[in-house]
Design a binder for these strands. Structure first.
Lengths: 157, 157
DNA sequence: ATCAAAATCACCCGAAAGTATGAACAAAAA
DNA sequence: TTTTTGTTCATACTTTCGGGTGATTTTGAT
């Protein structure tokens, strides 16, 4: 009788222990899962952070600061017979190369890209490339605007 | 005897089959692992890509376009106190109308036909017609040449 | 009222201009 | 030596221009 009761308790105890262990196992698994998830999120977050920074850095690095130019006209009486002097300072500031200036000059003469190419002994495509760069640097869309602006800031006569 | 041999083969076959299945299982597990690893890399890569783009977009969108304002003093060769006087004589001589002069003027500002039309509240086609007449009267082929010539003969400033 | 010049607009078509992207290569600079 | 810069060219594609033609509507002058 005693042993029987004891056995019974033993069985119950075993059941209880098993249950406890099972619960523990489940809890552990859950925890492990959570930790795993967590660590992944942290990892992903770090990646996200890093690459966001990289993106910002990239665009900052690669973007040329757009310069807004305000031209103030200063009235000066000057002999027009004196030769025109190119504003080299502006050229450097805008990063306009010698070749680009040539193209710009011919543009201001009303020449077509084709004609400019023939004049400089380069292909039409090259002229187009130069033109595109000029427009970008002068912050304009059209050749007429480019000529307009170039004259204003003293790049061409 | 026959059954025994058969049994033996059967056993061998079962062993072999078990082994094959085990190998298959292992291979499958391996593959799954690889796929898992791979998918993680892809995931991380996508995160990286997305957030790089986000960073670029952020800095482009949120950063006020770095406009560094430069003031340029331009020496004007003409006395601006004297207002520009249109060469009416030339106008009449070439038969250029008032409207055409307007178009010419806006052209010299580097505006496109579309923009000129919007400015003058007329259609693009009308601007084109005016432009064609202007080119004809000024005896030029391009707007750049027209502006060039118009300035030369004092039709525009 | 009518006639002529000017202004307006339309449609088509080909040419020119402009955009986007990529690449080769030489000279200069770091 | 590696990197950067300037020049050159290309291909593919979209947009704008310019030429040609014709038509309707104002407007001003006779």
């Amino acid at each position: 009788m005693k042993t029987r009761v004891l056995n019974k308790y033993k069985t119950v105890g075993l059941y209880g222990l098993s249950l406890a262990l099972l619960l523990l196992l489940l809890r552990w698994l859950e925890l492990k899962f959570l930790i795993y998830q967590h660590s992944f999120e942290i990892y992903a977050g770090m990646i996200a952070l890093f690459f966001t920074g990289l993106g910002i850095w990239l665009s900052q690095k690669l973007t040329r600061p757009k310069t807004e130019t305000r031209v103030i006209e200063k009235t000066v009486y000057r002999d027009p017979s004196l030769p025109f002097e190119i504003n080299r300072k502006e050229m450097e500031l805008l990063g306009i190369s010698e070749r680009e200036l040539e193209v710009l000059h011919l543009m201001s003469q009303g020449m077509s890209n084709q004609e400019i190419g023939a004049q400089l002994f380069v292909s039409l495509n090259t002229v187009k490339t130069h033109a595109a760069r000029i427009f970008e640097k002068l912050d304009v869309q059209r050749r007429t605007q480019a000529v307009e602006k170039a004259k204003k800031i003293g790049l061409i006569a």
